[in-house]
């Protein structure tokens, strides 16, 4: 199980990394062609946003799996230990329900998005690219998050200490 969840997480992060790289390159092309060649591109901004939205929505589920989302825990830490153990599954469930609802209604939004075109990308690929291709990132990201959150409830992964993590990460950096 652990190996599968790691594989999923690493795959998602790899794709997200590639997408954010494309985003960056696209923006650099935008600067160069506008500023140095006086030939503004109409597709670069849209491509950058497209890749970024997908990149974020693929990284969000991994952050849920690894409990990297920002939590305010001073009140929970003040609770007795027994109560603390109940709180985690409860908040996990709240996360799953919230993302499930948003994901479900995002699917219903696809129809409205399908009738709109992303004009820049349409020009780049010379065929109509509907806005729904971008909106799709929301239900996909929400669904993946729900799955990974439920997995985490079943196979508990200890919550990392964000402060300790920030420190360790700085340690390896310098």
């Amino acid at each position: 199980m652990k190996r599968i969840s790691n594989l999923v997480a690493n795959t998602l992060l790899f794709v997200a990394g590639v997408l954010i790289t494309i985003s960056t390159v696209s923006l650099l092309i935008q600067v160069v062609s506008r500023y140095f060649f006086n030939a503004p591109t109409v597709w670069s901004e849209e491509l950058a946003i497209f890749c970024f939205v997908w990149s974020t929505m693929l990284a969000v589920p991994v952050a849920f799996l690894r409990r990297e989302h920002i939590v305010i825990d001073f009140a929970v830490n003040a609770l007795p230990k027994g109560l603390q153990r109940l709180v985690n599954p409860l908040t996990d469930l709240i996360c799953a329900v919230t993302l499930g609802v948003i994901g479900f209604f995002a699917v219903r939004l696809l129809e409205a998005a399908d009738r709109q075109s992303l004009s820049g990308l349409t020009m780049l690929f010379k065929s109509t690219i509907p806005l729904s291709s971008l909106y799709l990132a929301i239900p996909v990201g929400c669904a993946l998050s729900v799955v990974l959150i439920l997995y985490r409830i079943v196979a508990p992964i200890p919550a990392p200490d964000p402060v300790a993590e920030a420190i360790t990460s700085a340690e390896t950096e310098v």
Partner: peptide
């Protein structure tokens, strides 16, 4: 306060 991630 019950420790739900801020975003959620």
């Amino acid at each position: 306060l019950i420790g739900t991630p801020v975003a959620i």
